[in-house]
């Protein structure tokens, strides 16, 4: 399947649900032209195209990873709708631009990640310093929202209980590192 390309939307969705980043790359290539055209027509710049692409695909990634996600339309349509929402948000911030394409996208909403919290960037550094297994496991669980059984299958653990235990160890390891750096009171 890989190296040649995904056969269908369902392939891409399934691979995203498993945390396969190659599916994200495929999604990027498939949707770049249409999103780029849309943003540029609506007074966007090349730099903003890239921002919209990134935000869109991250949002799509997280939405698809949710267990309740159900694809009711073509994946490209879904991605494009989220991209338009992303661009509307940016235009709203600017307020001086007028949108050309005003297709209704109310039923599809981009589920953005929350804004970065206090000290999150430094925590991020410590996450990246974890060993690969811990890093992947924590990312899969907390960001991708992949369930324990799928993580077990994906990472070669015996079962979900093993994943749960390993995740606890990894989390504690990270927590200790962070606490050592900042001290307990910094998180209050």
């Amino acid at each position: 399947m890989f190296g040649i390309g995904f056969n269908s939307d369902n392939d891409i969705v399934n691979e995203i649900k498993r945390g396969n980043e190659k599916a994200l790359v495929t999604l990027y290539k498939q949707n770049l032209n249409s999103i780029k055209k849309f943003v540029l027509i609506n007074s966007g710049t090349i730099e903003e195209v890239q921002d919209v692409m990134q935000e869109t695909l991250i949002a799509v990634w997280q939405n698809i990873a949710k267990p309740e996600f159900l694809l009711n339309a073509k994946l490209s349509t879904y991605v494009f709708s989220i991209a338009k929402n992303q661009w509307y948000k940016q235009l709203k911030k600017k307020t001086r631009f007028k949108v050309v394409d005003v297709a209704t996208t109310d039923n599809i909403r981009a589920d953005e990640s929350p804004m970065l919290m206090y000290d999150s960037k430094i925590v991020c550094d410590y996450v990246n310093n974890l060993d690969e297994t811990c890093r992947r496991l924590l990312m899969y669980f907390y960001f991708d929202g992949i369930d324990m059984n799928t993580i077990a299958e994906q990472m070669g653990f015996a079962n979900s209980d093993t994943v749960k235990s390993k995740k606890y160890q990894c989390f504690k390891k990270l927590e200790n590192s962070v606490k050592e750096h900042f001290g307990k009171d910094d998180f209050i």
Binding site: D119, K121, V123, V127, R135, M139, F171, L174
Partner: peptide, 13 residues
């Protein structure tokens, strides 16, 4: 504390 760490994990991902 756990919330802040989770946010850091999400940011890293």
């Amino acid at each position: 504390s756990q919330k802040a760490i989770i946010e850091g994990i999400k940011l890293a991902r």
